[in-house]
Simulated scan of single mutants.
Amino acid sequence: MKYKLVHKTKYKYAQAVNNYHSLLCLTPRNLPNQSCSNFSIQISPEPSQIVERTDFYGNKTHYFSLHAPHKELTVLTTSIVERSEANTGTLFMPSDITCSAARHRLVSDRSLKIALLEYMLPSPLVKWDEEIVAFGRDCFVDGVPLYECVRNLCRKIYTEFDFVPDFTTVHTPIKEVLAARKGVCQDFSHLAIACIRSFGFATRYVSGYLETLPPPGRPKLQGSDASHAWISVFIPDCGWCDFDPTNNVVPGERHIVTAWGRDYSDVPPLKGIIFSYGKHTLTVEVDVIPV
């Protein structure tokens, strides 16, 4: 499936901003089952330069700064991405390796453990305690395949939690999400990562897009698609396998990968510093358009 991705972010400031520095992480990754053939950025006011770089995790980022007073900022990115369902099927083939065997492999293979360690330890937004461990304990049984255990955890989150937009922010602790039993894709991904890491397995946070389908007979509304988040778990003998706890599915051709890291703090779409005061408003519109 081929898509045109349009991501528009607009800030309005109560008081003029004199200086602004921003880092964008919005370029879709090139993967065995995904290729990005075109990516463009339009910024208003126009910066003097946009600097491209690749971060520690292999994500492509863009830095820009503004040094003239402005009360509005618009960042528009457009991409052409092709996803291959056939390749996705091979990447997400289930593995029979059990939890105990997978854990032993991660502990006994020193080079593998060193390569994956950052995805096994607590990170800025993913920490756990006994309550979080208890939530995931019934999903992880030593003699059961690790792949099946992760699917069980995703199913549990999907079943027991409600998707409630605007209930949380990027700073809401996982413990609050667990107590309230509601949140958004970012929260459910962080909870799943915390549970899986707590049992000794490597898990990373995946940021991207999901094409949404309108009700039968209804046209898709402009801007109705959304940024999305899911997880990827390293399963020995199989590699990195993606899971979407928000929708209880294995990501397919409608899931488009932008970036990955330890948690959301590594891969926010826009991360900026402003030199001003007063309130501001933020609007984000996303379109995932089949080509």
Rank of each mutant, 00 (worst) to 15 (best):
A194L: 05
A194S: 08
C195S: 05
I196V: 08
R197A: 13
F199S: 04
F199K: 09
F199Y: 15
G200S: 11
G200R: 10
G200L: 11
G200V: 09
F201G: 06
F201L: 08
F201H: 12
A202W: 02
T203Q: 09
T203L: 10
R204Y: 06
R204V: 02
V206Q: 11
V206S: 11
G208V: 01
G208F: 00
Y209V: 02
Y209G: 03
L210S: 02
L210K: 01
E211T: 01
E211Y: 08
E211R: 07
T212M: 12
P215T: 00
P215E: 00
P215G: 01
G217K: 07
G217L: 06
G217P: 01
G217C: 05
R218I: 05
R218E: 08
P219G: 03
P219K: 01
P219F: 02
K220P: 01
L221Q: 13
L221S: 13
L221C: 06
Q222W: 11
Q222C: 10
G223E: 02
G223L: 03
D225V: 04
D225H: 04
D225G: 05
A226Y: 00
A226V: 03
S227A: 02
S227I: 00
H228P: 10
H228Y: 12
H228L: 13
W230F: 11
S232I: 02
S232C: 03
V233M: 12
F234P: 06
D237M: 01
D237W: 00
D237F: 00
C238S: 14
C238H: 12
C238W: 06
G239K: 01
G239M: 02
G239F: 03
W240M: 07
W240T: 04
C241V: 15
C241T: 13
D242V: 01
F243N: 12
D244K: 01
P245T: 04
P245E: 08
T246V: 06
N247I: 05
N247H: 09
N248E: 05
N248G: 02
N248H: 09
N248C: 06
V249E: 11
V249K: 11
V250C: 13
V250D: 06
P251V: 00
P251E: 01
P251S: 00
G252L: 06
G252V: 07
E253I: 08
E253A: 14
E253K: 14
E253T: 09
R254W: 07
R254H: 11
H255A: 09
H255Q: 09
H255N: 13
I256L: 01
V257A: 12
V257I: 13
T258L: 07
A259H: 03
A259M: 03
W260L: 12
W260Q: 10
G261Y: 10
R262E: 08
D263E: 10
D263W: 15
D263N: 13
Y264T: 07
Y264H: 15
S265Y: 12
S265K: 14
D266S: 11
V267L: 08
V267I: 14
P269M: 13
P269N: 11
P269V: 09
L270C: 14
K271W: 15
G272V: 10
G272A: 15
I273N: 12
I274K: 15
S276V: 13
Y277W: 10
Y277H: 13
G278D: 14
K279I: 10
K279G: 14
H280N: 11
T281K: 01
T281W: 02
L282Y: 05
T283M: 15
T283G: 15
T283W: 14
V284R: 07
V284I: 15
V284Y: 11
E285F: 15
V286T: 04
V286C: 05
D287M: 00
D287N: 04
